[in-house]
Design a protein around this nucleic acid. Sequence first.
DNA 1: ATGGCCTTTATCAAAGGA
Length: 257
Amino acid sequence: MKIATWNVNSLRVRLPHVLDWLTVNQPDVLCLQETKMQDENFPMAEIAAAGYQTIYTGQRTYNGVALLSKQAGYDVVTAIPGLDDPQKRVLSAIYDDVRVICIYVPNGGSIESEKYQYKLKWLAALNSWLRDMLSQHQKLVVLGDFNIAPEECDVHDPALWEGQVLFSLPEREAFREVLKLGFLDSFRLFEQPEKSYTWWDYRMMAFRRNMGLRIDHILLSNELAKICTACAIDKSTRKLERPSDHAPVIMELRTEA
DNA sequence: ATGGCCTTTATCAAAGGA
């Protein structure tokens, strides 16, 4: 079973990339963030033509998440229970017997901003929810754009990013607190190339210079970590015309077909 | 490096992203 995540930064613009990527990679489930479109505009027909079913929850201009899958998902959840949040950042469903939770964590603006406080509050609510979900689902995947680079090796220049949003200590602590609930970072279960990142600024030729951050993650419950056979970042999409600034991350589980 | 670049919008300048 292949499960992947990709912040597409506008599904309208990136739809051709997504369709190509589905055809080439054949994931069982692809989670998208920043679709930036209302539900009535969702390109369900084009995606169905590629052989994928869709679940989505979107809004105009900002945010928006979607699940594309070969088989139908069920028991859909579209928000963190108990968190009053109009922003569409969460989508979850069960595929086969695996509970998949797709998240788009708030960016946080800058450390001094209200958006940063919103991010920390959001992460605290996520933690409580995931604790609850773990008690109900042994096979649990939490994946998406976390907007947190957890370790120094996930940042091209840790000194430059020290204390900045995406790499500040409270955010990294929140990430560690999620791991402590009983998750493993699937990317780090395997030998990986040095300086592996999932996001590069559009400016400064950052991709060409590999000035990136690893902020998109796939976390696995212990039960799933035991059967995880691979996890990799696909940098190839970042070289396309009009690319998303994020690269997809893809993970594979050894499951009975 | 107080911006650069990309996307969106009751656009053509400003906000948000990361």
